[in-house]
Design a protein around this nucleic acid. Structure first.
Lengths: 239, 239
DNA sequence: ATGTCAATTATATAGTCGTATAATTAATTA
DNA sequence: TAATTAATTATACGACTATATAATTGACAT
């Protein structure tokens, strides 16, 4: 904009220096800036659909700086995902402990809430919603990208909840609990990441105020599904 | 068959000619071959992660032939998706009509089955399972890719089922029916596409009985979720 | 038989991708 | 203060991308 000084002012956080070399001030938190940009763009375009250039432009730095901090595209992707995933998993584990201390660990609804609370909270910020989309998308990315990350981040906490649910639903076989846990994850991932489609299906009635309503819908849907008895439905073999 | 030797024999279906020009026999159904290859590869790698080369090699033809039949990469993607989507949507509509004729249109479980039957049947073949993965993945692809396709293919039939479900669950507000319909779609998409990963992980332990069992799990989970009453759950505001 | 059209390969092109490396500047340390 | 390290830009590179075009061959109608 302003001639010689040549600051672009397009970066998300700060103008940033344009000359090579270490910039003057301390603490530029450019690392976090890169992660935030990556979170947004990976969420929107997926891994293969995202370019390093796009991220670096969004973050207001050069591509080489991404390599400097994260070694490679996949290194960046991995850290972007794990940054929040570990927090979510830890929070779920802590919530479960709290339920146990309060003697509520056999209440299915309480377990579902304890499991979902960390991701529901993410809906409060645009950055958090971006992560939710990234998270949902990871389940459809090629296994060589997603499998280890999912396993590393979520296996432990998910297994703890399967056990807790099995205690809360002792009449179910363990494998059935696992399936229902899977269905629950699919339900919330789709619901939380695909608000656009919801708006499409109900163009007139959607507003941000209904976030709480959606939460209740999701939780009651899941709680009912988890506790369903096999007898119902399946009326005729072929319709 | 031999003639000028250079046949490669690597194509999925037939040896195919190597020289330029129109090949000798009639009816090579190469168009369908391309669609099948595209279905597989788009399903595994997503739109951005798939290259025309990969598809053409898998189909045993040259890249230019894809452009010849489908104009562009997106043209191929679009036709790959719509080829089965229109069949699924039509089948759902027909199933609903049949339920109405048989007086079962107010049975929630019957409605769920009628809606799911076309996609459940796709699980019978590897090609069909590939489409299911592609279908699930479409919901996380960038909107400019997926929006119009989804809308064009599924909006009509989905709206018909929302109306039918509203008739079957008259105590619910219409918007709640729409929420639950969305949750149902998320549940089955995740369940059916994730199943493929299960098959990959334990190829030996997977059999048709388990498939039927899973189907019942999914249906009863969804039927319970659809009919859930709001009162349950939501025990304490913050866990 | 002959000319037109359908179906295919071969080749070229302009652009974009991830990554590697060198140059540069400031902060930190000895 | 001198040397080293951290953080940044600039530039280059080979591989790969989607697509366009030309050449080639057989089928088919006249």
């Amino acid at each position: 904009m302003s001639g010689i000084s040549g600051r672009r002012g397009l970066a998300v956080t700060e103008p940033a220096a344009k000359r090579p070399g270490r910039p003057e001030g301390g603490k530029r938190q450019v690392r976090a800036d890169i992660l935030n940009s990556a979170e947004m763009i990976f969420a929107d375009n997926g891994y293969a659909g995202t370019t390093m250039r796009e991220i670096s432009e969004h973050a207001g730095i050069t591509q080489a700086l991404i390599t400097y901090y994260f070694r490679s595209k996949f290194g960046l992707f991995s850290e972007t995902f794990l940054r929040r995933a570990t927090v979510i998993a830890d929070c779920r584990i802590e919530n479960l402990s709290q339920l146990r201390r309060r003697g509520l660990a056999r209440d299915v609804a309480a377990l579902v809430e304890a499991f979902l609370q960390p991701v529901l909270d993410l809906r409060a910020t645009a950055q958090g919603r971006a992560y939710l989309r990234l998270h949902a998308r990871l389940h459809t990315e090629p296994p060589n990208l997603s499998y280890d990350l999912r396993k590393q981040a979520y296996d432990e906490s998910t297994h703890l909840y399967v056990e807790a649910l099995h205690d809360a639903l002792p009449h179910l076989a363990r494998i059935d609990v696992q399936w229902r846990m899977t269905l629950m994850i699919g339900t919330y991932l789709y619901a939380l990441s695909d608000t656009h489609r919801m708006e499409d299906l109900m163009p007139d009635a959607y507003n941000a105020e209904d976030a709480h309503h959606l939460m209740q819908e999701v939780i009651s849907f899941i709680v009912s599904g988890l506790g369903s008895s096999h007898s119902q439905g399946v009326s005729s073999a072929n319709v």
